[in-house]
Design a protein around this nucleic acid. Sequence first.
DNA 1: GGTTACAGTGAACGACTGTGCACTCAACAG
DNA 2: CTGTTGAGTGCACAGTCGTTCACTGTAACC
Lengths: 219, 219
Amino acid sequence: MSNAVDTRTLEPVSEPLTPVSRQERKLRTRQALLDTALELLADRPFATLSLREVAKGAGIVPTAFYRHFASMEELGVALVEETTRTLRGMMRSARTDPDTYQGMISASVATVHQFVRANEDHFRFLTRERYGGGPLARAIGVELRLFSGDLAIDLARFAPLRSWSTEDLHMLADLIVSVMLTTIVELLEARPADDAKITGTAEKRLRLVLLGVPHWKSA
Amino acid sequence: MSNAVDTRTLEPVSEPLTPVSRQERKLRTRQALLDTALELLADRPFATLSLREVAKGAGIVPTAFYRHFASMEELGVALVEETTRTLRGMMRSARTDPDTYQGMISASVATVHQFVRANEDHFRFLTRERYGGGPLARAIGVELRLFSGDLAIDLARFAPLRSWSTEDLHMLADLIVSVMLTTIVELLEARPADDAKITGTAEKRLRLVLLGVPHWKSA
DNA sequence: GGTTACAGTGAACGACTGTGCACTCAACAG
DNA sequence: CTGTTGAGTGCACAGTCGTTCACTGTAACC
């Protein structure tokens, strides 16, 4: 019930009695840059971030930014990688033994719910930039396709889907991913009080989709 | 096969022999502002547009912009209204007599395809800003919910859906809308050569969803 | 212990931003 | 015909932006 991944590490609690090595300091400022960027991104698109404010938020002077990234776009790519790790963690966590449909559905929705609430910034960034255009959207698109591909492979292990063509499996996986993305956006837009209703609807949608599976003919 | 809506009217072909009234000139510059904005938005989010470049594109000086909109945000809202008209036109065009599922599915997908290709800028703007945050995303969200509500009412007329609760009807409508949105994004990201494949997949997804309908129990 | 590598500094640049203000000049109302 | 209205102009302003360059101080290396 608590295998969420939290990457927030803004400040170490203890003073650096250990004088902290040089490269560790560097890594720390790099992470501070990523963290403040993600924080600022809570309510605006990436393209409106300025190098200067990210640097200021991380506590360094603007020009020092270049010691870590060649440009804001490069930071954006790093951000995609970081948030993508969360996504993969979620997938790993949701992978379950071929059980009943209903069990799989509610477990998956619960996992999504839990990861979204534990890493709101990451998912906000991902869903916001997914359709935002530019290189970030493309990078996220690639990642989501990989994700969907993995899901297709997982689905192939279920008995009723053994006979499906890989094309149809991908179609189903994409459908499920798009339902999940919709759910994620709904969660991010709502107050946590409405979580139960949203996850309930999500489960219904997935049930309806999977209800068609036994009657599918590829035509 | 050609009831698409094209709002592009950058320049009138004929010289204004009719001296054009004052308010008509004003409307024309206003439209020029909206048109250039939409054009610039083809490959970047709205938040990165500057008042100055929109004004320049419309052929007026920056300060004259304020004769038409109090701020860029107000122009954005007007843009949402404009693109939303296209969306409603699409819905009107897709409304069809309760026929076979398959007929309804392919007709709807064809309508979406046709409208997207005829108004790429509008749909690009809508899908880009839908998740972009800020007041525009909220305005678009409201509009999409209306759209989904209308669809739910239409769905209620189909025999197999007569007995469904309104809640479940909304769930189904949302599901269909999200499939359609996914399809729209795919169309906008792909070259027109791949249109057939994309619409084919879209039809499959809808077929699968509707296949579950007869077996649905709200549970 | 002397030297080097390098994260971070601070001033400066040219370009671009939104907005205020006084203006022009043609369509309109009386 | 005369006076008013208002879309569009031109200048000016105070900020912010990304990026340059020469610099400082210290951890790491031989």
